[in-house]
Amino acid sequence: MRRGFLLMMILAACNPEPSRFGFGRAATVREIDSLNISITPDGKGLPVGSGNAALGQVLYTSKCAACHGATGTEVSNNRLVAVFGDTVKAKTIGNYWPYATTVFDYIRRAMPYNSPGSLTNEEVYSLTAFLLWRNGIIDSTKEINAHNLAAVVMPAKTLYINDDRRGGDEIR
């Protein structure tokens, strides 16, 4: 025990790590803001702007329908629309996604696939509203914005459980 302690002391003395190395540089608020596009499920990080399903439908038809189908139900791969509780096997925003904020976040990051990052925040709000409406989650007339998106209740949310596998002699 004492020998182990001594050895540790010696090793630590040979190779001390400073509490800070001083490498890298401070990030400015501007630099952070230009990169920081994350949104938490409570809505923190949502940009100003708003949109609705009617506007979203027009955008969807011109920018999304080619890959996701005219109404979001026509393709099996990356099908976007199926109302919670119906018999559709495909996992969609309506029957599988637990948070509405994720719809906004993902479209803004990655869609349209052939031109990612090309949409304005207003367009993303409208597309989000359109997809939430098509999935039977909100009313067709609802205006979606930074203040009310996080409050939209996603029906699949109650199905989620945290990983319960723990290793050891059991299969989960």
């Binding site: 938490t40 409570d42 925003i93 599988y96 904020t101 994720t102 976040d105 199905l159 459980i161 990983d163």
Partner: peptide, 29 residues
């Protein structure tokens, strides 16, 4: 808090018994 991104909700989650969906299944068995 976690951000609940598309890659940890729509994808990389798995249905288990009783229609439950398991999330944050990080360890590879």
């Amino acid at each position: 808090q976690p951000f609940m991104t598309r890659e940890e909700t729509s994808k990389y989650t798995e249905t288990v018994k009783d229609g439950k969906i398991r999330q944050f299944s990080f360890d590879m068995d």
